[in-house]
């Protein structure tokens, strides 16, 4: 019963919702519902920590209609982090092709756009755009959870 007391003491951890960002064109067919599959194409895991925070009780991206799912078949969008490494290039392509259409790709972090500190490394194929078409970039190294949540809200339109 200590758990119930702690739940009552913790109360609400979620921060107040910031102002709603401008909806993106894709919000029209998403209709306030966005299922996301995450692919780590070779990141340093900094972006994963921030993405995890975006879905934590404090930032709570789920309240805007976004949800992480367990299969690309269930997903409307994949979030991709990191420069695409040689070993992950085919896996990323396969994941993209496994998604039913219409489908979106969200690049998260500077590495996804221009390989960041890993540019030119021998195991790196290139930025995400070289492997699958990217619809939306969230800049930052790593991007703050607020920036990730704002991008997702632009897609869900809420």
């Amino acid at each position: 019963m200590g758990l119930i007391r702690r739940i009552a003491a913790a109360g609400r951890a979620a921060q107040k919702a910031p102002a709603r960002p401008e909806p993106l064109p894709a919000a029209r067919w998403l209709k306030r519902s966005l299922q996301i599959r995450h692919v780590d194409a070779g990141s340093c895991n900094g972006c994963e920590i921030e993405l995890g925070q975006a879905f934590s009780p404090v930032y709570d991206a789920e309240r805007y209609g976004a949800r992480l799912v367990a299969s690309p078949r269930h997903a409307d969008a994949i979030t991709v982090t990191g420069p695409v490494t040689v070993n992950m290039a085919q896996a990323l392509r396969t994941t993209y092709e496994a998604m039913p259409e219409p489908r979106l790709v969200i690049g998260i972090g500077d590495c996804a756009r221009n390989c960041g500190a890993f540019a030119g490394a021998h195991a790196v194929v290139g930025p995400v755009d070289d492997v699958v078409p990217v619809d939306l970039h969230v800049p930052g190294c790593p991007p703050e959870p607020d920036a990730i949540v704002a991008a997702l809200r632009g897609l869900t339109g809420r």
Binding site: I7, A10, G11, R12, A13, A14, A17, P57, D60, E62, R63, G65
Partner: peptide, 9 residues
């Protein structure tokens, strides 16, 4: 969600 301290959907 409410019990976890989230705002919830």
């Amino acid at each position: 969600a409410r019990l976890e301290g989230r705002a919830g959907r």
